[in-house]
Design a protein around this nucleic acid. Structure first.
Lengths: 189, 189
DNA sequence: GTATAATAACTAATATCATTAGTTTTGTAA
DNA sequence: TTACAAAACTAATGATATTAGTTATTATAC
């Protein structure tokens, strides 16, 4: 093999994402990644710090992309419409990029500052959608947790094949979010 | 070491659960498990089929126990009270037995019949709590999905340290469930 | 333009796993 | 008491990540 095929960190990350989306993040091994890139495993260390670091990169990229997907989805929408659209965008992302989504959710911990930053962006985004509801800061933060719980829980269960009944899944998600939003309208509590 | 120390499958499973709860299911290795049991790694194969099988056993046990915890929690309660109690019991279980809960939720797939059976028991349990609401079967199934999404999502995010704000977490969970239940009351939709 | 330094690939080696095969010891039942 | 099943063992294999040290290529400095 020719020396110097012009590999860089971004290319490696992209290949890792492809592998993860195809076979799950559990199956993402440096051996498989190196094979895909036509290099030997140790050569990967010129571009990544190691497997844990690579996983972290996947998580970070996933958080950035899922937030972008939500931002895109709420263009021209507000309040319940916007939250519904954001929720669907979240779940759709998890469907389209299961490995990347897995990387987000199968993280041992969010201790890393870069990950926290990316996570904060998601939270801030939801807070901005919530602005027109006129909630107190504390109330809004509880709602953010609720929203994240719903969409992450749904995406996660769906991904593990946790929904086995013959029942339209998009409809389940729509009802979940709408029921919650209806409850939010009723009492400010 | 003495031959025949009277080990059996249940003891091995218990030790595995302890390890998983202590260090996470990712760190549950046969090597560590064997060390804990004072045997050599290959000896484990007298009691388990292999690591994937062990993981499956953990998942199954977790599903059984989390359902039992919910059953216990709803004694003497009905409707919203029962659902709220079940939801809290679910999340409490995830807190108390993080490794076991991880085993439930970090499953590659639910293909296995035994796991499906255990999962069905959870679904059936929630359906029984929903009975007094007089929902159609289809409506009820959507609600079950919603409920599972909420509590799993909450437990999962909490476990990954996903909730970073200084904000009472139990209160977040209470509001999430109550808001949803309120929405359920408003319209039968 | 050539020398030098940084870089990206490589090979070799190590440690940790899970797993299988084959062996020894122990408990139990005939 | 003997024979067999079961539960432990040792030894070996193959996959994995990682580190150390080497070589070739690219880029930079002069």
């Amino acid at each position: 093999m020719a020396y110097r095929q012009g590999l860089d960190a971004e290319t490696v990350l992209q290949a890792a994402i492809e592998l993860a989306d195809l076979q799950g993040v559990e199956q993402l091994t440096l051996a498989a990644l190196a094979t895909k890139l036509n290099i030997k495993t140790p050569s990967l260390y010129n571009h990544i710090k190691g497997l844990p670091d690579l996983r972290k990169q996947l998580s970070r990229r996933g958080l950035v992309l899922i937030k972008e997907a939500m931002v895109e989805a709420v263009i021209g929408k507000a309040e319940d419409d916007a939250l519904l659209a954001a929720g669907f965008a979240y779940v759709m992302f998890a469907r389209k990029q299961p490995g990347l989504y897995d990387a987000i959710s199968s993280l041992p911990d969010y201790e890393d500052p870069e990950l926290q930053e990316a996570g904060s962006q998601v939270v801030l985004f939801i807070l901005r959608i919530l602005a027109p509801y006129g909630l107190s800061e504390e109330d809004a933060l509880h709602v953010v947790r609720g929203f994240r719980s719903m969409v992450h829980g749904f995406a996660s269960l769906e991904h593990r094949n946790g929904f086995r009944m013959e029942l339209e899944r998009d409809e389940s998600l729509r009802r979940l979010l709408q029921t919650y939003l209806r409850g939010l309208r009723v009492a400010v509590k």
